[in-house]
Design a protein around this nucleic acid. Structure first.
Length: 328
DNA sequence: CTCGATCCCTGGACGC
DNA sequence: TGCGTCCAGGGATCGA
């Protein structure tokens, strides 16, 4: 699940691998997660990849203006532009030799001028890709919060302490901070000994300062270790990260807290599974954790209405022929 | 302003 | 073996 450290890792890998390459052509598979697929096919060819940046959980491939004969075909829209890439949950982007068989769920292939292909694969298609002109990009990037690695302690405290939302929700809110997701939210709250369900307004400024400090430490450490590979995160070289070995709370339900040995608990906060130590991170009044999962984990519950829906979709799935890139 | 609910999507794990 | 169910979760959206 790519959060800031994972996206930073991928951006660095891409920078190493494809900076300066020119895009020759674009082939698309499924396109329902692409803003304007035709724009990709129309405007990407002929452009050079001049920079790879990270903005929160987004990657930005900065593209040169188009020149020469290609320019005629693009109907005048030749100014520098950007390709915005969000990896969602399962997105991967990496160059590979053009001849290589396509991985399953490959939805974008960009042929480069050195013969390789920059490929985007995404099983769940929670990601997003958009070709953006300068103006559209500026519009796209408004409304995001501070970069957690850059934010000052005062600004961080201001953004947290004045709010009545739960701290977990605030950490996950991209308009408060850009780039933090479920894993690093839980890890930093554990380190700071703050319960995820506490309200921002009920934290002292000192606690906010602590939270910012540990969040930055954790993010920096995670970047050094090339991110966390929980299920299927791979960097631009196709390598998993290492930071999952350092998780202290996330995914550790029932296991002993690294500080006090108390079993880590799980609760739903801000709609997400949240892991915390019930002793080090005392709950706000009236807050109940989920009952500890049994030996075999699963509980039998009825959630319903969702999977009925899902089966319906699955069974009547003649609606969409698999894209060309879907073949294996 | 903040909340929960719902939807998007698929693979993997598990229950029976 | 095989089907049904649950879960993972970032983000958009909507109603309370």
């Amino acid at each position: 699940m790519p959060e800031l450290p994972e996206v930073e890792t991928v951006a660095r890998g891409l920078r190493q691998a494809i900076l300066g390459r020119r895009i020759i052509s674009v082939t698309l598979g499924k396109t329902d997660f692409i803003d304007d697929p035709v724009a990709l096919e129309l405007h990407l060819p002929g452009r050079r990849i001049e920079a790879v940046e990270r903005y929160g959980k987004f990657m930005l491939l900065r593209l040169s203006a188009v020149s020469g004969e290609t320019r005629v075909a693009t109907n005048g829209d030749a100014a520098p532009a950007s390709l915005l890439v969000h990896l969602g949950m399962t997105g991967q982007i990496a160059p590979s030799p053009a001849g290589q068989p396509l991985e399953k769920h490959t939805h974008v292939c960009m042929l480069l001028d050195d013969g390789r292909e920059l490929r985007y694969t995404d099983a769940r298609r929670f990601g997003r890709i958009a070709y953006l002109t300068k103006a559209l990009l500026a519009e796209e990037l408004t409304g995001f919060g501070a970069d957690p690695l850059e934010v000052s302690k005062e600004e961080f405290a201001d953004r947290i302490c004045g709010r009545r939302a739960r701290i977990k929700a605030l950490l996950l809110d991209q308009s408060v901070l850009r780039g933090v997701g479920n894993i690093y939210a839980d890890e930093s709250l554990w380190k700071a000994k703050i319960h995820p369900a506490r309200l921002g307004a009920n934290l002292s400024r000192k606690q906010a300062h602590t939270l910012r400090r540990v969040l930055q430490d954790i993010l920096r450490k995670a970047i050094v270790l090339r991110g966390s590979s929980i299920s299927d995160f791979l960097d631009a070289e196709g390598e998993p990260g290492e930071y999952q070995r350092h998780h202290r709370a996330y995914g550790r339900e029932g296991k002993g807290c690294y500080r006090c040995k108390t079993p880590v608990r799980r609760a739903i906060v801000a709609g997400r599974s949240s892991y915390f130590c019930p002793r080090c991170q005392p709950s706000p009044r009236g807050f109940a954790a989920l009952p500890l999962a049994g030996k075999n984990g699963r509980k039998t519950k009825r959630k319903n209405a969702k999977d009925a829906d899902k089966s319906r979709r699955r069974n009547g799935k003649s609606r969409r022929a698999p894209g060309a890139a879907e073949k294996r």
